[in-house]
Design a protein around this nucleic acid. Structure first.
Length: 270
DNA sequence: AGAACCACCTGGCAGC
DNA sequence: TGCTGCCAGGTGGTTC
């Protein structure tokens, strides 16, 4: 389920258990993720300490002093803190065993996630081309207006383009466009200043609200069962095809854009 | 440069 | 019960 809010909630949940901890071992049970998990992690990581954990888009970066452990959750990944003695289950592909006796465990059934190592995050190919952070001040109406000039692509797939702005996945793209009252099929370049400003604001509030909702369930983050503090969001259009729009009661529609489902209200998204 | 499409992989669910 | 087909929160690569 991980879009930016889920990754950020994961970061906050992990931080108190990771930062300052010495790494005892790295366990790779299945190296066949989106990118092969480097075998030499088993050798590199033991003895290093985790100095911090930061998020860039949907990536998490563990500062290990000598380098950075780069993590991505893909479509189905989750990270939890469990006692290192907890038996691994079918899709538990990677553990970072800590001096505390706990380990950070990656579960990822579809294996679209990533566990990589880099000494230069700024120039790492997966990170170097990333766009602006949507919660940073640099992202706003002016930025969005500039970024969309001359673009004939529909605004929804553009919002999900990590080269422009990071972290906005299918759910929150749908929700933010609903919030802003903008039809997802609108050609990006046709949005004026006003609508760009409204959309940028909607992106920020949608993401911030989701983070806040997840943060409130952080106490469930650590444990051996189920999900790491993910939360059931109340979506207003996503997954609600055929239902009444909460704003104008028109029937919510579902279409395809770039092989992804788009949900919108034909009544109030123009 | 930009846009459209494919690929990677497993699990859950609807329909028969 | 069990099979088939379709769908799912991401993103890098290829093609035109």
């Amino acid at each position: 389920m991980p879009e930016l809010p889920e990754v950020e909630v994961t970061r906050r949940g992990l931080a108190p258990h990771l930062v300052g901890q010495r790494i005892e071992a790295a366990v790779v049970r299945h190296a066949g993720l989106r990118h092969p998990v480097p075998e030499n992690l088993r050798r590199i990581l033991p003895g290093l300490a985790v100095h911090g954990i930061v998020r860039r888009g949907k990536y998490l970066l563990l500062d290990c002093g000598a380098g950075w452990l780069l993590l991505h959750l893909g479509m189905s990944g989750s990270l939890r803190i469990v006692p290192a003695s907890t038996p691994a289950e079918k899709h538990d592909h990677f553990d970072l065993v800590l001096a505390s006796g706990n380990c950070m465990r990656l579960r990822d059934p579809r294996r679209f996630g990533a566990v990589l190592w880099t000494t230069e995050p700024e120039t790492h190919p997966l990170l170097a081309e990333l766009g602006v952070e949507p919660l940073d001040a640099a992202f706003g109406g002016d930025f969005l207006h500039r970024a969309t000039r001359g673009r004939r692509t529909a605004i929804k797939p553009l919002l999900m383009d990590s080269h422009v702005v990071v972290g906005i996945g299918n759910i929150y793209a749908n929700e933010a466009l609903f919030d802003a009252g903008i039809n997802p099929k609108t050609a990006a370049g046709r949005l004026g200043q006003t609508r760009c400003a409204r959309l940028a604001e909607a992106v920020k509030t949608t993401l911030a609200r989701a983070i806040a909702a997840g943060g409130s369930s952080l106490r469930d983050f650590v444990g051996s069962d189920g999900n790491p503090g993910y939360f059931q969001q109340q979506y207003r259009v996503y997954g609600r095809a055929g239902q009444a729009c909460p704003r104008c009661a028109a029937t919510i529609r579902q279409i395809r854009q770039g092989q992804r489902s788009t949900f919108y209200c034909p009544g109030c998204q123009k």
